[in-house]
Amino acid sequence: MDPGPAHKSGAEDWQCPFLCHRGLVNYQISVKGSNLFKLEVRLLDAENKVVANGTGTQGQLKVPGVSLWWPYLMHERPAYLYSLEIRGKGFDWPLLVKDFNLLRWLGANAFRTSHYPYAEEVMQMCDRYGIVVIDECPGVGLALPQFFNNVSLHHHMQVMEEVVRRDKNHPAVVMWSVANEPASHLESAGYYLKMVIAHTKSLDPSRPVTFVSNSNYAADKGAPYVDVICLNSYYSWYHDYGHLELIQLQLATQFENWYKKYQKPIIQSEYGAETIAGFHQDPPLMFTEEYQKSLLEQYHLGLDQKRRKYVVGELIWNFADFMTEQSPTRVLGNKKGIFTRQRQPKSAAFLLRERYWKIANETRYPHSVAKSQCLENSPFT
C-alpha cells in the first residue's frame, strides 16, 4: 500500500567530528497516510554513489572517511576572514557566477548576508566555492525604543527559527547574525538581544552567534551575550572628512576598548568609502579612486596590528555599487563598491587582491610566510 508522501520534520543535522573525519547525519522523518510502509534512507555523494544508508523513521547515518569542507578546518587551524559584503537582492544565475568568480579572483574567503538571508542558490554556491558565510536575518532598522517589544521579540525568534532551519546544513555557514546596527545602547535592547541570541543558540549550539554593532563600546547592552563582536565603523568618511591620518589611531582605540571590556574576538564587519569610478585627484580627495584606496590602506595597517591577536576578520562594504533611493548623500546610488555595478574593478580592487592572496598564503604556510605562491599560478586566477 502506498502510504503517501514522506515529509521531513526537520532537515538533516550535519555534524563534523574534526579528529576522526567521520560524517554523522541525524534524520527524522514523518509519513502521512498508512502506517504500513517500509522506509529506506540513502545518502548520496556528488557522484550519486551511496555512502551511507539506514532504515526507519529516525536514526543516524555514519559516513567514514569524509573529506572535510575547508571552513571546518578552522577548528583545527585558526583562520582569518577577509572579504567584501555582497548584496543579495534578486537572483540572477549569470550574475551570481560572475560575482563568485570575482571573489576567487580577489582571493576572498567570506561574506555576510547583509542584511537578510540570501537565496538558497547563493548558499549552495558558497558550499561549492568554499566561501564562509555569516548568515544574517532581516533584523535591520531596529533604531527606536518601541521596536524592542514582546511582539517584535516573538517575531524575531520565529525568523531565526526559519533561517536556522533552512541554512543549518550548509557547511559554508559558520556564524549567525541576529541584527544589523540595532540601537543596542538602549536598556530594552539588552534584554531583547539577550533573548534572541539565547534562542538562536538553542536552535544551533554548534555555531557562534553575533549581531553587528555601531554603538559605543561602553554603552552596548547586547555585546555581553555574543560570541564574536562585529563592528561597523567608517572613519574618515562619515566624520573627520579627509583626515586619513586619523584612521590608525581611531581603529586601534576602537579595538582596544572593545577587547578590554569584553575579551572576545572581533570582526571589522564594515568599513569603506564612496568612490566614483574614473574620479582621480592627487592628493586624494573624497569620492576619488585614490581616496578609497588610501582609506583602505590605512585601515589595513590598523587591522594588521591586531589580526594576529584578537581581530579575526575584515569585511569591506561593499563588493559592488548598487542603486538606492535618491538622497543628497548618494551619487546615483551607493558607490562604496570595489567594483562598479557592471562589475568593472576600481583601483582598490587590485589593492585588495594583493592583500587577500598574501593573507591566504600566510594562512596556508603559517611557518613560512616567504613561501608564497605566485598569483599567476593560483588555481583561482
Score class of each variant (00 low, 15 high):
P3G: 01
G4A: 12
G10P: 00
W14K: 05
R22C: 02
R22L: 11
V25E: 00
G33Q: 09
L43E: 12
A46Q: 12
Q58C: 11
W69C: 00
W69A: 02
M74V: 12
H75F: 05
Y80S: 00
Y80W: 10
E85Y: 05
W93Y: 11
K98M: 06
R104P: 00
R104Q: 10
L106G: 00
L106W: 02
G107E: 01
S114M: 15
P117H: 14
Y118K: 05
E121H: 10
M123G: 11
G130P: 00
D135T: 07
F147N: 09
N150D: 12
N150R: 15
M157C: 15
M160T: 15
E162P: 01
V163N: 03
R165P: 08
R166A: 13
K168F: 14
V173C: 00
M175P: 06
W176S: 03
N180I: 14
S184F: 12
S188Y: 05
A189P: 00
A189E: 14
M195H: 09
I197V: 06
T210C: 10
T210Y: 12
S213H: 08
S215V: 09
S215H: 06
Y225D: 05
I229H: 03
C230N: 03
L231T: 09
Y235V: 03
L251Y: 13
T253L: 09
F255W: 14
N257L: 06
A277Q: 10
G278Q: 07
L285H: 03
M286P: 01
L296R: 10
L296A: 06
L301D: 02
L303T: 02
Q305D: 09
K306I: 03
A320D: 06
S327Y: 07
G337F: 07
G337N: 14
I338Q: 04
F339Q: 01
L351F: 02
R353I: 00
R353K: 09
T363A: 02
R364I: 09
Y365E: 05
E376N: 13
